[in-house]
Write a protein that binds this DNA or RNA. Structure first.
Lengths: 243, 243
DNA sequence: CGCTTTGTTGAACGGGTTCAATTCGCGTGG
DNA sequence: CCACGCGAATTGAACCCGTTCAACAAAGCG
């Protein structure tokens, strides 16, 4: 694997310029690959988790279950994201982690990460930055659930996914492949699957975006960004690259 | 100030057993006290923030504004919590920070914190743990906004506040003082102030809890925990104490 | 003591849910 | 190759939780 094949290296490289040595360190951390089937819980809430993973391929969801059987998806992970980074620090996971598709991920131990941090503070900064922007995305979702209507939530969410996928080279100018079902969207956005369907139809009819057969396509970017009240700072991520 | 007077020392001490030296280090970090008036923005979104604070007294809210004028409160901070810890790492704050009451807080620089971390890894662990459980609380609120109805949200939120206040000695067995207005509750829980009022009346009439004149009182703890689907693990925080 | 903020209550409205039925896509086995 | 089965998508209709608008009471404060 070369740094260009590694979504994580691409992402970290977008935050901080990394040296050859740092890049190869990152790549080297990903040699222990393994694959998991869609739907099979990777981590079960309350279960101890001694190690974490770097997601290489496929999509994952992190969610919490409620007594009544309801489900709230907290976040999705895409290639280059960490799985269970928090759980490494603590004894047990505080939510479920389940692949949305078949995935491949590389395992690493707490010690590996700490060693990497020790050898390169800049690498540590990049990882922290990445973790921090994942947290910011969760906060942005909180804002959506609290104060945005269904249509705004959907647009905002699909735009946010686009910026994240872009960072690892998995989206082009106006579209990306997205394996999420309408049930996934519903459980992430705090809506019913039925209403997700209606909203998607509405957005399609308004010629704003299309989500069909696993592919999201934006038809009017400017209108979407405005209607969703999407923070344009996200769009400038690529300009973070400090050479 | 002694460790017992310091909410932060109390909280960290609940996570990890700290030595005399570590405790005094924590106390020493809080010598640079200053006070702020209620309502005056401490940090404005997008504004650079070179240093952070430890909240000593009073309550603070962190929130995001929406284009339409709506507000979503992301979290409240109580004594012992950090203000703008994240903003220290990054250049700019990603949300507003505003005192709910008149507060006193002690300033510290990024370097102070890093020095503390270097001198005591256990202190670092405790701080990270504390930051991490704040994040977990935000996730729990996300779940509330996505999948719980107004009554459950309210109960869950007031119970969560209780556990946090307990940790710093600001709540007794069944009650605590709470300076939040119904507007604050509304903006934190994604409800309208009118509906917050109705829900509080309902909870009072059902003899579950009372929130009047700045004081929250629980009347039936067991029923509340069940109705709110509140994770009892939170209640066992005091038992976390690992040496 | 008036003024502003906060709390309280009623009535009408509406976004989103729920229930139910139908269709579509697709892998599987006869 | 086609029928079957099953999960996902789609659509309609009734309902309901929470909002909005509006008015008023209470409490805090200079």
């Amino acid at each position: 694997m070369t740094p260009l094949d590694s979504p994580l290296a691409r992402k970290l490289g977008a935050y901080v310029i990394l040296t050859e040595a740092e890049l190869s360190y990152v790549v080297q951390m990903q040699h222990h690959q393994r694959s998991f089937e869609a739907g099979a819980d990777l981590v079960h809430e309350g279960q101890p988790m001694p190690c974490a993973y770097i997601l290489e391929e496929g999509w994952v969801s992190s969610y919490k279950m409620l007594r009544g059987g309801g489900r709230q998806i907290v976040d999705f992970q895409i290639p280059g994201d960490f799985l269970g980074l928090r759980s490494v620090l603590f004894r047990t996971a505080d939510h479920h982690i389940e692949p949305v598709t078949r995935i491949t991920a590389s395992k690493f131990a707490k010690a590996d990460l700490l060693a990497a941090f020790k050898s390169s503070p800049r690498l540590a900064t990049a990882v922290l930055w990445s973790a921090s922007s994942a947290e910011a995305a969760v906060v942005e979702r909180l804002v959506s659930l609290g104060r945005r209507d269904a249509s705004e939530r959907m647009m905002h969410f699909l735009l946010e996914l686009w910026t994240r996928l872009r960072l690892v080279g998995l989206a082009d100018e106006t579209s990306y492949n997205c394996p999420l079902s309408q049930y996934h969207l519903a459980d992430a956005l705090g809506l019913s699957a039925v209403h997700v369907n209606r909203i998607l139809r509405q957005l399609r009819e308004e010629n704003l975006l299309t989500f069909r057969k696993g592919k999201v396509t934006f038809h009017n970017f400017a209108a979407l960004v405005t209607a969703a009240d999407f923070d344009k700072a996200y769009l400038d991520y690529e300009q973070i690259v400090v050479q």
